[in-house]
């Protein structure tokens, strides 16, 4: 891995997020630690409620007012947690950018595409209006928007979903960020457009040497562009490793079961899928011990008694960790033995 010795761009350490709700507090993220190096893309995978978005919204300081965040996140040497909005805005959109799932609601409807990109450039870099417009055009071309000069003066509703997501990426790139967080950037798009956007993100990562966090529920999306993968379940990272390690030889039964249960386009099988039983746990009523225990084929008394911690080399060194009392040895797959 060429990234293995690159400097760490975003270092998240022991991050926890708790929401205070009328029905009591709700732990959305627990002890989330992840270091992303320059030029590296880390896929953060999990189902809804696994805490994958909340972790990065906490890093961005974008959580709702009833959230309590603890732990640390550093962008280079700057600490991000506990900063007020004015301080955060020195980084947000400059060194640290984020793109979201729904490109329609993330764009302002009454401003043209060019104005929205230029706004960020003028605000953060202090460019002149003409310079900002020229840079906006260059950015649109870089994100492969067709007919870019005409698009500058169009409004978001005149663009297709794929084009809007490209515009969002252009805005995110406006100030040459060191870290790009992409939160389900292709979930709302059709497969052919998804493939285009993923190819674009892969190119941008390669050419700009950005650190990238790609949040998704789709292991297939991760396989194409991520270098490493963190699998989350019920607010915790359960497995972390290179994309080859995690997808080819999963150690956590959840990762293995998830991979096995996904119907694949290149699988001609027609029988029943090896589904994971049960439902994702309710964060208010987590089972004792391992949160995946009630759905796990290998769970025993030890799993019900004690929650396994994430064991392995520290995340900074970038290889394998797994939170399981009975990690798979990488050759057998979940469910084969049941």
């Amino acid at each position: 891995m060429s990234q293995a010795d690159a400097p760490v761009a975003l270092d998240i350490d022991q991050l926890s997020v708790v929401f205070d709700t009328p029905d009591g507090s709700l732990a959305a993220v627990n002890d989330f630690s992840l270091a992303i190096r320059r030029g590296e893309c880390v896929g953060v995978v999990g189902e809804s409620g696994a805490g994958k978005s909340q972790s990065f919204l906490a890093v961005m300081g974008l959580l709702a007012a009833n959230a309590r965040v603890s732990g640390q996140a550093r962008l280079g040497t700057e600490s991000l947690i506990g900063r007020d909005v004015a301080e955060l805005n020195r980084f947000r959109g400059v060194k640290l950018s984020m793109i979201f799932q729904d490109p329609m609601t993330s764009l302002t409807p009454h401003m043209t595409v060019g104005e929205q990109i230029a706004e960020s450039i003028i605000h953060h870099l202090g460019s002149s209006a003409e310079a900002a417009r020229a840079r906006a055009l260059a950015l649109l071309e870089q994100v492969q928007v067709t007919d870019a000069p005409r698009r500058l003066d169009q409004y978001p509703h005149e663009l297709s979903g794929g084009m809007r997501q490209r515009v969002m990426i252009a805005i995110a790139l406006a100030c040459d960020p060191e870290v790009l967080i992409a939160d389900e950037p292709t979930t709302a798009l059709d497969v052919t457009i998804q493939a285009q956007i993923l190819a674009l993100l892969a190119t941008l990562k390669r050419e700009r040497g950005m650190a990238m966090a790609l949040i998704t529920h789709d292991l297939g999306v991760v396989a194409g562009i991520a270098d490493r993968v963190a699998v989350m379940y019920a607010g915790r990272v359960v497995e972390l490793g290179t994309v080859h390690e995690v997808l080819k030889a999963p150690k956590h039964p959840y990762t293995a079961a998830l991979l096995a249960s996904m119907p694949r386009i290149d699988d001609a099988g027609t029988g029943p899928l090896p589904a994971i039983g049960g439902q994702p746990p309710n964060p208010r009523r987590l089972p004792s011990g391992c949160a995946f225990g009630p759905r796990c084929a290998y769970a025993d008394d030890a799993c019900r008694a004690e929650r396994p911690s994430l064991i392995g080399p520290s995340s900074i060194e970038g290889t394998r960790s797994v939170a399981c009392h009975h990690p798979l040895d990488g050759t057998r797959h979940a469910r084969e033995s049941t």
Binding site: V191, A195, A202, D218, L219, G220, G224, H244, K248, R264
Partner: peptide, 12 residues
Amino acid sequence: AAVPVPDPDLQP
């Protein structure tokens, strides 16, 4: 061809 496959050897 556009449907992603969870296999890092094929998907890129």
